[in-house]
Amino acid sequence: MEAINSLQNTQIDIASKFRNKAAGSVLLIGLALAVMICSSQGVMLPSIDKPEIWFQRSGSVAVFIAVYLEYIAQYQLKTIPELAREGINLSNPYSNYFGWISKACVALAVVGTIVWGYGDLLYLVAA
């Protein structure tokens, strides 16, 4: 009986950690998008720089966040089968969720790379 309770407590602790990492990942994706949007609107820019340059720089922030989150998502996706072998089943909700985060990170990295490389031109075309 004690072994079953211990396994259940371990599963709850691990599920809580996965949930926190997933929620944090979504928040960081939102932060990366907010940085790009705010810089495109000229929020909190130094007066000596042009807004198109800061929009272009925001692409590097988005790429950095995307690469970091992709690493976390891939690590979590690799960990789920390892935990299942130990009797802790988290595969359904979390593998789907981290799979979605992984795809969102790839999209964020692509958008961030385009903004990083051509953000000044995109800004001028859109203005």
Rank of each mutant, 00 (worst) to 15 (best):
E2C: 01
I4V: 08
N5E: 12
N5P: 00
S6D: 03
L7G: 00
Q8E: 15
Q8A: 14
T10S: 15
Q11Y: 06
I12F: 10
D13H: 12
S16N: 13
S16Q: 13
S16G: 14
F18S: 00
R19W: 05
R19L: 10
N20I: 10
N20H: 05
V26N: 02
I29M: 02
G30F: 13
G30C: 05
G30H: 03
L33Y: 14
A34R: 04
M36I: 12
C38R: 06
Q41H: 13
M44T: 13
L45C: 01
L45S: 04
P46F: 04
D49S: 14
P51I: 07
P51S: 08
P51L: 06
E52F: 09
W54Q: 08
F55L: 09
Q56D: 00
S58D: 06
S58V: 10
G59C: 09
G59H: 12
S60E: 10
S60W: 15
A62F: 08
A62H: 02
V63R: 06
F64K: 02
F64I: 12
F64V: 09
F64H: 03
F64D: 10
A66D: 03
Y68D: 00
Y68N: 00
E70S: 12
E70W: 13
Y71R: 11
Q74E: 07
Q74L: 12
Y75V: 11
Y75A: 11
Q76N: 15
T79P: 00
I80R: 00
I80F: 04
P81K: 02
E82N: 12
L83M: 09
A84L: 11
A84T: 14
R85G: 15
R85H: 04
E86M: 13
E86S: 14
G87S: 07
I88Y: 11
I88W: 11
I88G: 08
N89H: 15
L90M: 10
N92C: 02
N92F: 15
N92A: 11
Y94T: 05
N96A: 12
N96L: 09
F98T: 05
F98Q: 00
F98I: 02
W100L: 08
I101W: 03
S102P: 00
K103R: 15
V106P: 01
V106K: 08
V106L: 07
A107P: 05
L108H: 02
L108C: 08
A109E: 04
V110F: 04
V110T: 06
V111N: 00
V111Q: 01
G112M: 07
G112F: 08
T113E: 05
T113P: 06
V115Y: 02
W116T: 07
G117I: 05
Y118R: 00
G119P: 11
G119E: 08
D120T: 09
D120A: 13
L121K: 13
L122T: 03
L122M: 13
Y123G: 02
Y123Q: 08
L124E: 13
A126N: 07
A127V: 10
